[in-house]
């Protein structure tokens, strides 16, 4: 399982690097999907199969399809690639890279100072997840559902057909 975990992490990192360096948006999205799949595999290796399946279903399966759908609708073509190239010269990466490096160093220091209580990964059954969600974390679940409801109402409002005005 450890090997699988590190392999999946390597794939995830490589795929994510590919995501931010691709000029073609659809290719970038494909790598993002790959990255999400790798993350799902990491969850699986860590003993959380339920989250792994949800990661694939919800993130890689549903949300990313929507992204692809929207990008297909926009039909960018070569012009989009050229625009990406103009907007993303290598020097644009310097700032975020430095910030990310600081975070990484921070993380490494914290990990070094505090030897993790990693222990053996323990398989969490779906039942345990649901008990946790609807037990101690009920409030969070309700908040999230409230947020989704707000999103739903907003989407309905945006997509609503305006009633025809009388004096038009």
């Amino acid at each position: 399982m450890t090997i699988a975990f590190y392999l999946a992490s390597a794939v995830a990192i490589a795929a994510t690097i590919m995501v931010i360096t691709r000029r073609n948006v659809v290719h970038a999205l494909l790598y993002l999907i790959l990255s999400l799949l790798a993350v799902a595999l990491m969850f699986f290796a860590l003993g959380a199969p339920f989250i792994a399946a949800l990661e694939v279903m919800v993130y890689a399966g549903a949300i990313m399809v929507l992204f692809v759908f929207v990008i297909m609708m926009l039909n960018l073509g070569p012009a989009g690639v050229a625009q990406e190239r103009a907007w993303l010269p290598p020097r644009m990466f310097v700032g975020p890279a430095i910030l990310a490096a600081i975070l990484l160093a921070d993380l490494l220091v914290l990990l070094a100072g505090n030897p993790a209580s990693a222990g053996q990964p323990q398989v969490v059954a779906p039942k345990a997840v649901s008990l946790a969600l609807y037990g101690p974390y009920l409030l969070a679940v309700e908040l999230a559902s409230l947020l989704l409801l707000a999103g739903l109402v907003g989407a309905y409002h945006l997509g609503r057909r305006e009633p025809k005005k009388e004096n038009d």
Partner: peptide
């Protein structure tokens, strides 16, 4: 122990082939 979810996940992966 998540067999059903695995099936759903794979079927949602299948969407990509058609779309892409």
């Amino acid at each position: 122990n998540i067999g059903l979810l695995f099936f759903l996940a794979m079927s949602s992966m299948g969407v990509y082939s058609v779309v892409l």
